[in-house]
Design a protein around this nucleic acid. Structure first.
Length: 729
DNA sequence: CGTGGGCGGATTTTT
DNA sequence: TCCGCCCACG
């Protein structure tokens, strides 16, 4: 962030480039000022990769004279895109409205909106999120009543998305002999037809269509190749087949890629990301300049040494070694907890100490492999009265009531949107039962038309008088909403719809706290609509708002700005940094996860995940594991993760349980053989009948004190201390 | 049509 | 253990 001093740049005689180059290290500068050739930046964790991208963009525009329209900057998340745009604007000191910065999906969407005709779409096409997609598939599978083995909708969705991510249409897949495969392919085709008829596009379809847009329209492709002379890509190791194909086609032989990524941080192989894209980049783009950013500005030397040692156990690497000009800092603390409750209490205790010394909670993260692990931490935090925030979970536009309201709005925009039609045709209940909906569905299928049209046709013929009336009422409601809100401001339109559709009333009448929360969320939707601005000559603001809702699901939880301890999975932590990081549950079977153990590439991805977690820590890293963990309701003995053993022992420091667990169990009121012995959690004890074990937990006071003991042979038992006659070992 | 109980399944996530 | 899903009832 240092930007002082005048400095003659190496290039561009007439331009003062010091504001772009000052404060960059040698390697960063090499990347930023690279000549016009393909550039691959291998950017280690915390090595300033976003900075390099941002400064490269500024360099191209200010020094190389590339116009903002000549740049295309691609990221994976909306958050990253917003950050990149913000930083470019800050560096240039001006808004960069002409600059295309966005996610793959966002950019594909933008292109398809402009070229909907060439892409073979309807103008007002809308986007299905993955939940919409699943619902649509479920209905489709159900309505087709397949003779034999029923199809699992989630499997079918995974199949379809995978094919699309690999760039394959049903017609590329006809040759299968396997029955299930053939069925999947045929369903894939039916699914496509349904989407087509309804004017719906799922996430993978956005990318595939955008790719096909290039392939099928030479002039268009030529135009965009000419326009986007420079392609900037962030988190390149996360690109899947279709994303990379899209980039390659766009680049052609003349486009100049500037791709930044880190093969050691590739943790999304399971959702189609191809680390090979990084490995093969130089082969695909001749004359590539590869720059390694290895100087780390985030972590202590100790943390980096640990990370380097860990990742060295992977084989498929391009090779990279992080270093810092700073100090080694504190050793890495390893805590062996007795169980997950003890683990959580340890973490809470340490955070409390940190806060006691004036530290902020939001500079501390608790990272775990799977979401279920958050529970024990939440319990301990609630107990301790410490504010926290859990990442993940439903986001605003994914909430059921919000999607209900959006479904009404989508119908107003496009009557043929079957997904939306089915969602709200009987919500709130208006006497259109499953039977009637089924009839409509069958009619629509038989006549290759939409539910809306089917409804119109069947009012006069095919439905009972009652049902016909109800359906008619629904059609009139939508028409009337569309007509009467025409020309309204977006937020007025939304407000009218949630009122007149009966949604508000429906949730109010619920009476429960949940119903109240839903009403509030609907009102929040009006607020969101009020704050939404987008201009497009051809599309209504409503249509754009709906796309926005699908493409940017909004925040999860409340954006509470208060000082909260951060709880999240290691996956969610990618790209973030914290003063203190607790990596928890480092146990074989949990991390590395049992589903990855035994598979070489799966194991390497687990290790990369561990690398990602490790490199989130700036000052202090804690590793914890429990000797026993309750998972799915059963207690299991667990063993320390191999990842702990892969770290150089001299960097580690074992935390003595007695130092942190100072919770002596209350003395029993009645004398027992244990009188006088201060039981501690973890204390080894002997029982006359059950043999030896470890104290895991204690509850109650005085004569009612109960101990939970894990016996070596008998498993875990609760014992009343006064009668148990436990012997301290 | 909405709910409650029985059943099975339970990495990781963004768009 | 807990959550979501499906089916049987009121």
């Amino acid at each position: 962030m240092r930007q002082n001093g005048a400095h003659p740049g190496g290039k561009g005689p007439a331009v003062d480039v010091s504001f772009i180059l000052d404060g960059l290290n040698e390697r960063q500068r090499e990347a930023v000022t690279a000549p016009e050739q393909p550039v691959l930046v291998l950017a280690g964790a915390g090595s300033g990769k976003t900075r390099v991208l941002v400064h490269r963009a500024a360099w191209l525009m200010r020094v190389q004279g590339v116009s903002p329209q000549g740049l295309l900057a691609v990221t994976f998340t909306n958050k990253a895109a917003a950050e990149m745009r913000g930083r470019i604007e800050a560096l240039l000191g001006m808004p960069a409205a002409n600059l295309w910065v966005g996610t793959f999906h966002g950019l594909a969407h933008r292109l398809l909106r402009i070229h909907w005709r060439e892409a073979g779409l309807v103008q007002g096409f809308q986007i299905l999120d993955s939940e919409d997609q699943l619902r649509l598939i479920k209905r489709m599978v159900k309505s087709m009543d397949l003779e034999d083995s029923s199809v699992e909708p989630k499997e079918l969705r995974a199949f379809i998305n995978k094919q699309k991510d690999e760039g394959r249409r049903p017609e590329h897949l006809e040759a299968y002999n396997d029955h299930t495969q053939r069925q999947f392919v045929s369903l894939y085709k039916t699914y496509e037809e349904t989407c087509e008829r309804s004017g719906l596009v799922d996430f993978a379809e956005l990318l595939l269509r955008a790719h096909e847009l290039w392939l099928n329209n030479d002039e268009l492709l030529a135009h965009y190749r000419n326009r986007f002379s420079h392609l900037l890509v962030d988190e390149f190791q996360d690109t899947n087949t279709i994303q990379y194909a899209w980039l390659r086609v766009l680049a052609g032989n003349s486009g100049l890629p500037f791709f930044v990524g880190d093969d050691d941080q590739s943790i999304y192989g399971w959702r189609g990301a191809r680390i090979e894209h990084l490995h093969h980049f130089a082969r695909h783009f001749p004359n590539t300049l590869t720059v390694r950013l290895e100087q780390n500005y985030r972590s202590t030397g100790t943390i980096l040494k640990a990370a380097n040692a860990l990742i060295a156990n992977n084989s498929e690497r391009m090779g990279k070694e992080l270093w810092t000009a700073g100090d080694d800092g504190e050793p890495i603390s390893v805590y062996s907890a007795f169980n997950e409750r003890d683990e959580a209490e340890f973490v809470v205790g340490r955070v409390r100490d940190w806060v006691g010394q004036g530290g902020r909670r939001d500079e501390v993260a608790v990272l775990y492999r799977s979401n279920a692990q958050s529970r024990s931490f939440e319990e301990a935090l609630i107990n301790a009265g410490m504010p926290y925030r859990v990442y993940g979970g439903l986001r605003f536009f994914e909430r059921a009531e919000i999607k209900d309201a959006l479904a009404y709005l989508r119908l107003i925009e496009n009557r043929d949107d079957d997904a939306s039609f089915e969602r709200v045709v009987n919500l709130p209940t208006r006497g259109i039962g499953a039977r009637s909906v089924e009839l409509l569905r069958a009619y629509a299928r038989a006549n290759a038309t939409s539910m809306w049209r089917a409804a119109g046709a069947m009012i006069g013929d095919g439905l009972t008088r009652r049902a016909a009336n109800a359906v008619h009422g629904f059609l009139r409601l939508i028409e009337s909403l569309a007509e009467s809100t025409h020309g309204y401001e977006l937020h007025e339109q939304v407000d009218t719809v949630i009122q007149r559709s009966g949604l508000i009333e429906h949730f109010e009448k619920d009476g429960s706290e949940r119903g109240q929360a839903r009403v509030e969320n609907l009102q929040e939707l009006v607020t969101a609509a009020r704050g939404f601005t987008a201009e497009d000559d051809d599309l209504s603001t409503l249509a754009l708002f709906l796309s926005h809702a699908a493409l940017e699901a909004g925040e999860g939880q409340s954006t509470d700005s208060s000082d909260c301890l951060q709880l999240m999975t290691m996956h969610s932590a990618k790209g973030l940094e914290f003063s203190i990081v607790f990596m928890c549950g480092l146990e074989e079977g949990l991390f590395p996860h049992r589903r990855s153990v035994g598979d070489a590439s799966g194991m390497e991805e687990e290790r990369r995940l561990c690398y990602v977690g490790t490199t989130r820590a700036m000052k202090k890293l804690y590793l914890t594991h429990a000797e026993q963990r309750r998972l799915h309701g059963v207690d299991n003995r667990s063993f320390p993760s191999r990842f702990i053993n892969e770290l150089p022992p001299e960097l580690l420091e074992e935390v003595r349980p007695s130092l942190s667990i100072s919770r002596p169990i209350q003395q029993p009121a009645s004398p027992a053989s244990t009188t006088g012995a201060a039981f501690k959690l973890g204390q080894r004890v002997r029982h006359g009948k059950f043999g030896d074990g470890i104290v895991l937990n204690c509850e109650g006071h005085g004569a009612h004190t109960r101990l939970q003991v894990n016996f070596e042979t008998e498993g875990t038992k609760w014992l009343v201390m006064a009668y148990a006659n436990l012997e301290v070992l």
